[in-house]
Simulated assay, not measured.
Amino acid sequence: MTSEQDLPADVLERFVGYARESSALTILFHTQVAERMGLSPTDEKCLDLAMRAEGPVTAGRIAELSGLSTGAVTGVIDRLEGAGYVRRVRDPHDRRKVLVEVTVDKAGRYAHLFEGARGTLREVLAQFTPAELEVLDRYSRVLIETFRRRVIDA
Rank of each mutant, 00 (worst) to 15 (best):
P56R: 13
E4G: 06
V16C: 04
A154G: 12
P56N: 10
A53Q: 01
A50V: 15
E54P: 00
D48T: 13
V86C: 04
V16M: 11
T120C: 06
E64L: 11
K106Y: 00
V100G: 02
E115N: 08
S140Y: 08
P56A: 15
S69P: 07
G108W: 07
F15T: 07
S40K: 11
R118E: 15
D78I: 05
T31H: 05
E132S: 10
E35H: 12
R141Y: 10
K45V: 15
P56C: 14
V104D: 13
V73G: 02
S66R: 09
I144S: 03
L49F: 02
D48H: 08
Y18C: 06
V73K: 01
A126E: 11
V135H: 07
M37Q: 09
Y139V: 14
F128W: 07
D78G: 07
A117E: 09
H93L: 10
Q5G: 02
D6T: 03
D43I: 10
L125Q: 05
H30I: 09
R79H: 04
V33M: 06
Y139K: 01
E35Y: 07
V76E: 05
T42V: 14
R95N: 01
E21A: 14
R109T: 13
V16L: 11
S69I: 14
A72T: 15
T74Q: 11
L7F: 05
R20E: 14
S66N: 12
P92M: 10
P8I: 03
S140I: 08
L143I: 06
G75K: 12
S40R: 12
E145M: 03
T129K: 12
T26Q: 09
M37T: 02
T120P: 02
A34K: 01
T120H: 11
F147A: 14
G55P: 09
T129P: 02
L136F: 13
T120Y: 11
E132W: 02
V142Y: 00
R95E: 12
R88H: 01
R122P: 06
V73Q: 01
G38D: 10
A34V: 04
A83Q: 12
R95F: 02
E44I: 02
T58N: 08
V102R: 00
T31K: 01
V76K: 07
H30T: 06
V89G: 03
R149D: 13
D153R: 09
R61A: 11
R87N: 05
L47F: 05
R14Q: 15
A107V: 15
V104H: 10
V124K: 09
S66I: 14
P56F: 12
T58K: 07
S22D: 12
E134I: 15
C46G: 08
A72F: 05
R141W: 10
S23M: 06
S69V: 13
E21I: 15
D10F: 08
D91F: 01
G55T: 12
I62H: 01
E4Q: 11
A126G: 03
D10N: 11
G116V: 13
L47D: 02
D6E: 09
T103V: 15
R14K: 15
R96Q: 08
L49Y: 03
A53S: 11
E21C: 06
